[in-house]
Amino acid sequence: MLYRVTGGRLGQPPDKPKSGCSGGCGCSDSAGGARPTSRREFLGLIGVGTAGLAAMVAGIPIIGALFSKPARSEQVWQLVGSIDDFEIDETVKVEFIDDDPAPWAGPAARNAAYLRRIDDEEFTAFSIYCTHVGCPVAWREGASLFICPCHGGVFDREGEVVAGPPETPLVRLDTRLRDGQVEILAAPVPVTGRRRS
């Protein structure tokens, strides 16, 4: 036997019990015959209500845990070398490990930045992340440019945009000198729209 499916039997709701009014429990006010309906609706309400409540109660820890974020970590000063390691006017890559990484973080905890020694005392540091959508810019000594391998963004040695799609300069990181040791204030991957200064 073949069934007609479109708008047919499959999935058709059972005949609704005829109810004198549509106001849920309010029906109990009306006379006689409405009673079973109101009782039925009440039970339905209890059932659905309990199920909904259960979903909410269980949902609190589940959704809460799913969207939990690790506590905001303080930005920490990272030692990247002693002052004698750096030549004046040279831009080099420095590496450091995230503060307090998870033991299994492996490569996810390793980080880098660009550091340029300006004079005896002063340094400039740049985030390696292109301000377009975050690819790692490569420093090209000969051309004196940071060039992004993703969409051809180009920044000069001061981190200013000189070509390509990026619109804001490379993010600068704070640096300081302590007892001849160079430190930079490591910033996280700059999720665009945040910490652009």
């Binding site: 974020k69 995230d98 999720v191």
Partner: peptide
Amino acid sequence: GEFILAGETLSGGT
């Protein structure tokens, strides 16, 4: 962005 990284930065949870 932080949800995607599972934190402020690329980390053990990402």
